[in-house]
């Protein structure tokens, strides 16, 4: 674990969130602050480059809207674009190692760690909450764990990732730009009231 600057504030710190418990809790919200996020763009037809990244634990998803779950999680964003998500503080190593692996090749590596924050939406009513403001088909048969999509939540652009939550359950990670984080949190918290909202801090 890389040591972090104590002055670093999460995107939702200004909301001074306090833990809250609802019973039953249809929705559980929390911020996953400071996850490492590195945007990667290059031509994945270049097999040598793909292999060099794989040696670093960066494995590209084989399918559109796919995710490779690993310490360095890779989310499909476009035909030549991915988001690498790491534990907090690991983004520097990813940037340095990946730019070495891709040296001399046409590529872009951009540190988006502080550009985005991540909000976790869990609980049995998570899908129903997102469906209020997201035009994606969120049904488990279409958007199961291991899928990612870029879309809208309320009025905001987001990256939405679906993960396993317990036995057969699903939870969602919403990546939104920092300046939209408070709006997004308020939108989610307001929409979750009818289901019972637990806030984990």
């Amino acid at each position: 674990m890389v040591e972090m600057d104590a002055r670093r504030r999460s995107a939702l710190a200004p909301l001074k969130l306090a833990p809250a418990t609802a019973d039953p809790a249809g929705v559980r919200l929390s911020e996953l602050a400071h996850l490492g996020k590195v945007n990667l763009r290059f031509d994945s037809a270049d097999q040598d480059a793909v292999a060099a990244l794989e040696a670093l634990g960066i494995q590209l998803p084989g399918e559109v809207n796919g995710v490779v779950a690993a310490d360095r999680r890779v989310l499909w964003l476009g035909p030549d674009e991915w988001l690498i998500v790491t534990a907090p503080g690991e983004e520097g190593a990813v940037l340095q190692q990946a730019s070495q692996a891709l040296a001399g090749r046409h590529h872009a590596l951009t540190d988006l760690t502080d550009n985005y924050t991540t909000i976790r939406v869990a609980g049995p009513s998570a899908e129903a909450l997102l469906a209020k403001g997201c035009p994606l088909d969120l049904h488990g048969s279409v958007f199961p764990a291991g899928r990612v999509a870029q879309s809208l939540i309320g009025a905001v652009d987001m990256i939405l990732e679906c993960l396993v939550d317990g036995a057969g359950g699903r939870m969602f990670l919403i990546f939104v730009r920092r300046s939209f984080a408070q709006y997004t949190w308020d939108w989610l918290a307001d929409g979750a009231l009818e289901f019972g909202l637990t806030i984990e801090v």
């Binding site: 559109v64 809207n65 476009g78 035909p79 035009p135 994606l136 999509a149 870029q150 879309s151 809208l152």
Partner: peptide, 8 residues
Amino acid sequence: WCGPRDQR
């Protein structure tokens, strides 16, 4: 690239 999506 992404498949069927809403017009919005």
